[in-house]
Nucleic acid binder design. Structure first.
Lengths: 69, 69
DNA sequence: CATAAGCTATAGCAGATGTTATATTCTGTG
DNA sequence: CACAGAATATAACATCTGCTATAGCTTATG
């Protein structure tokens, strides 16, 4: 479950997909600054951002692009 | 394109789907307060919220649940 | 009418987001 | 090494979001 801090989840997902912060931001529909702040523990995701991130990960998994992060 | 104010778009979509503000909020993954503020012109959607709303509408259309609002 | 229940409107506050700008670090290439 | 370009880190500010509480507005039911 959500044991790891959100910052680690984002880093792990981004690394697994081999995306830059900018690219992940675009894929999620958020700004680069937002992804950067997440990874550096400056902010936690809003409810909407959390849902969006989860949906994105689920989508990547069903496409075989993301292991069990 | 986006001719109508966002507040009107939200009202129209919600009416077409026959949802309460609370129900639409849940469907989008935002809070009731957020949908309420959108409809009353108190705030405009964040980038993420705009993308999420657009995706939601598109999904509803492909499911035949939403005419061309 | 009176009451209840559900929906909607509004407000305040803490925290998150978007934009912009600047600085730093990494990476490859000559 | 030296340099350029990309990627990342950080900051400030306005705006948006989430939460909570309160009040008003239907609608139904007795």
């Amino acid at each position: 479950m959500g044991t790891k801090p959100f910052s680690e989840q984002v880093k792990a997902v981004r690394a697994a997909l081999n995306l830059s912060q900018e690219e992940l931001a675009h894929a999620l529909g958020v700004s680069f600054a937002t992804v950067n702040r997440w990874e550096n523990g400056k902010t936690n995701p809003s409810k909407l951002a959390q849902v969006t991130f989860d949906n994105f990960c689920e989508k990547m998994r069903t496409q075989g692009r993301l292991g069990h992060v």
